[in-house]
Amino acid sequence: MGEALIDLVPSADDPETHRAQPGGAPANVAAGLARLATPSWFAGALGGDGFARAIERRLVSAGTELGLCARSPLPTALAVADPGPDSTGYHFHLQDTATFRLADRAADVDRFGAVYVGGLAAVVEPAAEAVAATARAGAERSLLVVDPNVREDRTLDPERSARRLRDLCSLAHVIKASDEDMALLWPGSAPGETCRRLAEEGRLVVLTRGARGSTAYTRTGEPVSVPAVPVDVVNTIGAGDAFMAGVLNWLTTTGAHLDGGPDRLPRDQVEAMLGFASQVAASVCAQTGTEPSMPARI
Rank of each mutant, 00 (worst) to 15 (best):
L165T: 03
S142A: 15
R219W: 08
N249H: 15
A190W: 04
G113P: 04
A4L: 03
A20K: 03
A103V: 09
A130R: 03
V174R: 11
S142W: 13
T76K: 05
D7I: 14
R53Y: 00
A30K: 09
P39T: 07
V80Y: 15
M1F: 12
A122M: 04
P191W: 07
G275Q: 09
D241L: 14
G44W: 02
A52F: 07
A106N: 07
H18M: 13
T38F: 14
P26C: 06
R212F: 11
N249S: 14
L184P: 00
Q279E: 14
H173I: 06
V80D: 00
G138Y: 00
T290M: 05
L207D: 03
V226K: 07
T64P: 08
V229R: 15
G260K: 13
A177W: 11
A114V: 06
D167H: 05
E222C: 10
A4H: 07
L207R: 08
A103T: 03
G47S: 01
S161D: 06
G138D: 00
T76C: 01
D86I: 14
R141N: 09
L78R: 03
R154F: 07
I237Q: 09
T208R: 11
G246D: 03
L251R: 04
L8C: 04
L184G: 10
E180G: 02
A12E: 14
P295K: 11
M1Q: 15
P126I: 12
P10I: 05
T220L: 01
D13H: 06
R219Q: 14
G192L: 05
R209T: 14
T38M: 13
A133Y: 02
A121E: 04
G238A: 10
P266V: 10
E222W: 02
T97A: 13
V124R: 13
L94S: 05
F243A: 11
L94R: 05
G240P: 05
V233G: 10
L156V: 15
D86A: 13
T290R: 08
R203M: 13
G2Y: 04
A239V: 14
F112T: 01
R264S: 10
A130C: 08
G192H: 01
L5V: 13
A242R: 09
